[in-house]
Amino acid sequence: MLKVLFVAIVLTAALQAKAQEPFSKQYADKYKEVLQFYPEINTGTHYIEENRSLEGHPFYLSAKIDFGSLTIGDFYFENVPLQYDIWEDWIISFSSVFNQRMILNHQKIDRFKLIDGSTFVKREQPDGFLFHANGFYREIVTGKTGLYAKHRKQKKQESSTIELKRSYDEVVRYFFELDGELVPILGKRNLFETLGISKKQAKQELKRAGLRYKKNKEAYLQTLVSMSNNVQP
């Protein structure tokens, strides 16, 4: 009985390894393609998830690495294995040499897109904003007025002293792009004046869409920015 069980375990492990092999090879091939043009994209540093004691993960989407795209200067690379650690503001890829995740050189990357379509771009640090890190912001709306978001994770504040739980907490800050610079959105006050739109018309549109600032912040801001971009100069 034990012998049969042992054989079953070995066969299962072998089949799993075989199933994963082509997927890993796809990762490796795409990573090599980027390295051909930009060998300095590899920092030479293995990625190790440090806060393993925390519940959850430090990534923007999920703990799974998947295909995305990279823009470096005038070069655009599709189907590159990417993962975005928003605890450290690191972009991770899959190394064919070490057969594991590596930290990419953020100074070489201008833009990247993840599997869900989220696009992140390198921007200058906004005045008074302390959590700029490596400078990647999610691009939400572009135009005369833009809308961007900075995602980061931190340790969640403990709400109970009875049962100690340590987990990640995601924080999102939003920014208008005005005259080419990112301006932190500090609250609801003066939004309409800042964007140069009619307060009455904006409130009517928001009410029609059923949007509230605290409950639907991103959609709320996106609606206002779109209205601002549609205002005739």
Rank of each mutant, 00 (worst) to 15 (best):
Q232S: 15
G73F: 03
G68A: 07
Q26T: 04
S226W: 09
S24H: 07
I197P: 01
Q204I: 14
I65D: 01
D110R: 00
N99M: 02
G135F: 04
H106M: 07
G187V: 00
K113V: 04
L70V: 05
Y27H: 08
Y213L: 13
M102P: 01
E177S: 04
V7E: 06
K188S: 10
A8F: 06
T119S: 15
L164G: 06
I92R: 03
Q16R: 08
L104P: 00
V121W: 00
P58A: 13
L206G: 11
E163A: 13
T223C: 09
K3C: 08
I92T: 00
T12V: 03
Q222F: 00
S160W: 01
E49L: 01
S96T: 05
L182G: 09
D89L: 09
T223D: 02
Y47R: 11
F192M: 10
E88H: 11
T119M: 02
L54S: 06
P58Q: 10
Y31L: 03
N51R: 15
Q16E: 07
S62G: 07
F75L: 12
S198T: 10
N51G: 05
T223N: 12
I115E: 13
E49K: 12
E55R: 15
P126L: 06
F6S: 14
T223I: 08
I185P: 06
S96N: 07
K25S: 04
H151C: 09
Q125P: 10
Y148F: 15
Q26N: 10
Y220Q: 14
M1G: 12
K203H: 14
R189Q: 07
I197H: 13
L114I: 02
L206F: 08
V97Q: 14
S93D: 02
L206Q: 11
L221G: 06
T119Q: 14
L54N: 13
Y148D: 05
E158M: 13
K207T: 08
N229F: 01
E193A: 03
Y174F: 14
R123Y: 04
R52C: 02
L206P: 04
Y137F: 15
T119R: 14
